[in-house]
Design a protein around this nucleic acid. Sequence first.
DNA 1: CTCCAGGGATCAG
DNA 2: CTGATCCATGGA
Length: 291
Amino acid sequence: MNIKKSGKDLIVNDIKDFDLAQTMECGQCFHFVRLDEEEYELTAYGRYLHIKQEKNILTFFDTTKKDFENIWRHYFDLDTDYGKIKRYIAKRSPELKEIIKKNKGIRILNQEFFETLMSFIISQNNRIPRIKALVAAISEKWGRKLTDTMYAFPDASGLSKVCEDDFRELKTGFRAAYLCDAVKKVLSKDIDEHLLTSADLKDCEEKLCAIKGIGPKVANCIMLFSLGKREAFPIDVWMKRIMEELYFGGKEQSLNTIAYLAADRFGEYGGYAQQYLFAYAREAGDSENKG
DNA sequence: CTCCAGGGATCAG
DNA sequence: CTGATCCATGGA
């Protein structure tokens, strides 16, 4: 990885195991706009970013070295060795070799805690385009304006005066009460990001599940995508189906049994494995719909 | 019209 | 502990 400035832009050369589109579109993030095949705009940590990939060259448009080092380097998980991770997962589960090859550029983003918390509450029983629309709507209504079309997601204090009816007006449906409860518990420090970060996986999950509307799946997404807990393993309907097919001969299993197998098989790399399994499941599901 | 979405709360057994 | 039903909303 070779970093240099070119006018206002910042260029990263020789980037390995990275594909921008795969990373943005794999269902972990909801606050971005696709401009072109490998070109996106997004917001995170109160900043706006316009980014583009051409082969193994990444261009961060109009970005200072300071912002790259303080924010984007960690956001895109650029200091993690994904080659090592992929080799480990392929060894533990050879069925995944092909799908890892197809999705060899997926990175797990290190997103902001509060935005991730709220986004995955919204994700429950919802579709990705709709989740994105709701995240954008909350940002536009209560967040800081960054460009003509993009707004930063507000922090908890920015939502302190927002009530359930306000969330309901945006058509968040039955999740309005959940969003309210999350804001309240973050403001009261009942939910504290730093305590969660230092807590172990089980303790952290338990604390997150104290928020109304958060269960095991959403809690694990929050831990994986915003608290740096890469051993977290979110199990949704897709994951359940594909795990039963790959490891249990197609027989139905309880969520606990599946979670136990994941922990045993993938350990500290559970979260990474989950991304490839998710891609595998979605691909299988799509071809099923076509055929 | 019906069905379902990267689930979870609630209640029955 | 496991299973069924409901939850708002919008797109297929």
